[in-house]
Design a protein around this nucleic acid. Structure first.
Length: 602
DNA sequence: GCCGTTTTCGGCCCGACTGTTTTCAGTCG
């Protein structure tokens, strides 16, 4: 029973109690306890053994004894009994936006609906609208939610796969028969959501590599098991394909499998125009003398799968992808840019920018603490930032209107600023900037007065409510917020949650124009669920001179690692060190934070 | 179920929005 499992059980208990219609404060007690466990720095088993669990804030005698039982015996009858009261599939229904515990309970008890499929059927048969509290509109909303749920399920968030994907590659690398191995496909390109994982390896004994692959831990089902290609289903439902090729074919196969399809088509057209031919099997000269029959047969020897036609031309030998680009008169194109969005034209002119690197970040600005809805204290967050090598860290807890997130009042904000000043006065590292994630209210005004905002080092302004407003209203709201001289950064500009909630409608052209005109930075929120502003908009923002700030939206120490993911998306958006403002060293950052305010005074 | 210098009971975070109602329940953030 590890910590994550324990957290899951506590949260599930809370959900079952909710379904039962238990006292909502009891439900919350279990949720709070789950949070408390999650934020523990010490080992739970140790706390149990020493009888100190009930001393942890949020865990009382009752829950402490349940956790102890679970940790020592591996069982919890209380939880098991709750599970027996409702079918497990009912929990899936609760994932649908618009369906909470009360509705799920009504659907289950009155219509016997226990899973998403039967709910869909009941909606189509117009049976749901008859329930008290439900109507035609609700029925339609549920149907739409089911449809989106299904569409989302076929995809996975990039940021949540990184660890798994890297482990998989490590495992394959440990196979003695593997020469080279790499992730490919949309994952390698850094698409924010991916359908499956594509992996490429080179080897002299492909069969042995395949056998090794299909029996790796974490493989739940083998979909196909061939000599050069196998597909498996990993635990968690993610599909993974492995291709194995002879080492000489590896660069061509890697380029081909990385894609995108559109990029590959454009590359092949370029090859044809130069009297060459590019495919997954190689880059060939199609004009001029063909290879001698002897050379041709020698070439096919090591790969019986290579099609006949591929061996009849001169192979242009490439040791890696860079050689392929060079052979086609192009500078190297990083995988993130291979979307056929102008990268080939730029590579031809040698104008592919030097993309920002994760090691170039010096600090960041959107971090929460236990003062609002974070799991770690200000000091803990600061220490974690130091371990990561950051020179500075901006603290931006929620503002008072975000009740659900325990937003700070003016008084509590002042206390936090005091704590930050004390930290800096001791010359501790990293340097802390005092900020806020200030709510943008319905009409575009901010949650704090200008006087309060002026007392802070910086302000992140974000929308957290009213997602159903029109594009016009949302846009006006954001524009007005950016006009405020104290708003340094526009936070997660579209509010999207990948595979869960669509962005609210907003005119991003106007938002970018306004950011440029007012000198407001736009956030690239690096939370794996957000990645907002989307990479597709950054080139436009950059053209207009808008600066990007990569923020983790961290709610616990470990979330600071999201920065790396943010950098991947910034790279995908063609951004360089100069475009990402938090690559500035501390001394320059002090000045940069004042630029917009000074401009306003002038 | 947790918490406590108002300490063993009685609070616990609040408001917007939606769709269902005819005065409010459910959901969400």
């Amino acid at each position: 029973m590890d910590k994550a499992e324990l957290v899951r059980v506590l949260e599930e208990i809370a959900t079952y109690l909710e379904l039962k219609g238990e006292n909502p404060f009891k439900v919350r007690a279990y949720r709070n306890a789950a949070k408390a466990v999650e934020g523990l720095a010490e080992d739970v088993t140790k706390l149990v053994a020493e009888g100190r669990l009930a001393q942890v804030p949020g865990i009382g005698e009752g829950i402490a004894s349940k956790i102890a039982e679970l940790v020592t015996t591996g069982h919890l009858p209380y939880y098991e009994e709750l599970k027996r009261e409702f079918p497990e599939t009912l929990l899936h229904i609760l994932e649908l936006p618009g369906v909470g515990p009360k509705r799920a309970k009504a659907l289950y008890e009155q219509l016997g609906i226990a899973d998403i499929d039967s709910l869909e059927k009941a909606c189509r048969e117009k049976r749901v609208r008859g329930l008290p509290g439900f109507g035609e509109k609700t029925e339609a909303t549920i149907l739409q939610a089911i449809e989106e749920h299904r569409r989302f399920q076929a995809y996975h968030r990039y940021g949540e796969l990184i660890e798994l994907a890297e482990k998989l590659v490590e495992a394959l690398r440990s196979c003695p028969e593997v020469i080279r191995v790499s992730l490919a496909g949309s994952f390698r390109r850094g698409k924010e959501v991916v359908h499956d994982l594509d992996v490429l390896a080179s080897s002299r004994s492909p069969r042995k590599v395949m056998d090794f692959f299909v029996q790796l831990p974490g493989v739940s089902r083998v979909l196909s098991h061939g000599e050069t290609k196998s597909s498996v289903l990993l635990e968690g439902g993610l599909a993974c394909d492995l291709r194995v090729v002879p080492d000489r074919d590896y660069p061509y196969a890697l380029h081909h499998l990385t894609g995108s399809k559109e990029h590959n088509i454009a590359m092949r057209q370029r090859a044809i125009a130069q009297g060459k031919k590019l495919s997954e099997w190689g880059l060939f000269r199609t004009t001029g003398p063909a290879l001698s029959p002897a050379a041709a047969s020698e070439e096919t020897e090591d790969n019986p799968h290579r099609p006949e036609h591929a061996s009849t031309h001169d192979l242009i030998v490439c040791r890696d992808e860079a050689d392929i680009f060079e052979a086609l008169g192009l500078s190297y194109i990083p995988p993130e840019l291979r979307e056929n969005m102008g990268e080939i034209e730029m590579a031809e002119k040698g104008m592919i920018p030097k993309l920002v690197e994760w090691t170039e970040l010096r600090g960041t600005f959107h971090c929460h603490t236990t003062a609002s809805d974070g799991r770690n204290s200000l000091v803990e967050m600061a220490q974690a930032a130091q371990e990561l090598g950051l020179e500075y860290l901006g603290i931006a807890d929620h503002s008072k209107s975000s009740f659900q997130a325990n937003g700070l009042t003016e008084e509590r904000l002042a206390q936090q600023m005091e704590e930050i000043r004390r930290w800096n006065a001791q010359n501790r590292e990293p340097y802390l900037f005092a900020g806020t994630e200030c709510d943008i209210l319905k009409d575009g005004r901010l949650d704090f007065s200008d006087e309060v905002l002026a007392s802070l080092d910086y302000v992140v302004a974000s929308i957290h409510t009213g997602f159903s407003s029109s594009e016009k209203e949302n846009t006006r709201r954001l524009l007005r917020a950016m006009e405020n001289p104290y708003v340094t950064i526009l936070g997660h500009p579209t509010g999207r949650l990948l595979l869960a909630r669509n962005p609210y409608p907003v005119n991003l052209e106007e938002v970018i124009e306004k950011a440029a005109a007012t000198g407001t930075w736009i956030e690239l929120n690096a939370h794996p669920w957000r990645l907002d502003l989307d990479w597709r908009w950054w080139r436009k923002a950059k053209e207009k001179g808008v600066l990007c700030v990569i923020n983790p939206d961290a709610h616990r120490c470990s979330d600071l690692a999201f920065l790396r993911l943010g950098v991947k998306m910034a790279r995908k958006g063609w951004l360089t060190t100069h475009d990402v403002v938090n690559t500035l060293p501390l001394a320059k950052m002090h000045r940069a934070l004042k630029t917009k305010r000074l401009k306003h005074q002038a």
